[in-house]
Amino acid sequence: MNAIEIRQLRKSYPGFDLGPLDLDLPQGCIMGLIGENGAGKTTTIRLILDMLQRDGGSIRLLGRGDGEDVMLTREETGVVLDEVGFPECFNTRQVNNVMRLTYKNWDEAAYREYLRRFDLPEGKQFKDFSRGMKMKLGIAVALSHRPKLLILDEPTSGLDPVVRDEVVELFSEFTRDESHSILISSHIVSDLEKLCDYIAFLHKGRLLLCEEKDLLLSEYCILRCTAAELNALPKKTVKGGKENPYGVTAIVRRDAAPAGANTSPISIEELFVFMVKEA
C-alpha cells in the first residue's frame, strides 16, 4: 500500500502554478521533498493536509480518499509544520492536557520521555522557548500519538547540528516499523541525504524527478576532465558542467564516464543544484 498517493495535483495562484504532480510514497519508506524557497513544497504539504483547496487532482492518505475516515487519518498522521502553532501562554503540561483530549492514542509516557530527551523545561511558557525548542516540542507532540505517517515541513530548520542529528536519528528509528512512513520537506539537503529512501526534486511547482536515492547516487558521478574530453561524450549523458581555466567539472551518467577517468561520487545537493540550473 502507498502511504501517500498523489495524482495530477494542481493549484494555481497568480504568478505561480503548482503541478500537475504525481507522487507515490510507498508504505515503510521515507521520501524527501527538496526544493528552493518558493518551489511549492509548503503548498504541496498544505494541500495534502487539506488546509488548502486544490484546483484539481486527487490525494489518498493511508489508502483513504477524500472524505473517507478523515478523522482516523488525522489520528494516524503526525504533523510538524515550520511554525509550531501552540498558544504562547502554554507550557508543556498544558500541551499534554490538551493533546490528551485530542488524540485517542496519546501516549503521555512517550511525550514525557521526549521532553526529557530534548531537555524541554516544565513550567516555561511557549513564548519563552527558543526556535529550536519550539521545533523540538512540535516533534515530541507529533511522535507521541502513535502516528503511522509523519508529514514534516522543514522540521530541522533552526536546530543546531547536534540536535539535527538526533532528530534525524529519531525519524530513522520511526520507520524501523514497516507500517510507518515519512514525507519530509527541507532545504537542508544533507539531512535528507542520510535519511531518505526516495528523493523528489520540486522546482517552480514542477517535479523534476522522483527516484530512489541510492539509484540516483549510483547513476551519476562527478567527472573532472578537459573540455575536449567532455564534448566527446554523448550529449544526453552529461547533466551539467562548470568550466574553469584548468578544466571542467561535470555531472555525467556513471556508465558514460570513460574508463580510468577522474570520477567521484555525487551528493544529492550537487545533483539538485545542477538540475535546477539546467531547468
Partner: peptide, 18 residues
Amino acid sequence: SYDEKFHWDRYCAAMPFT
C-alpha cells in the same frame, strides 16, 4: 485573533477536529 497570530488555526487543521 490570537489563534491566527500564533498559527494555532493552521496547526489544529491537521488535528482530528472538523
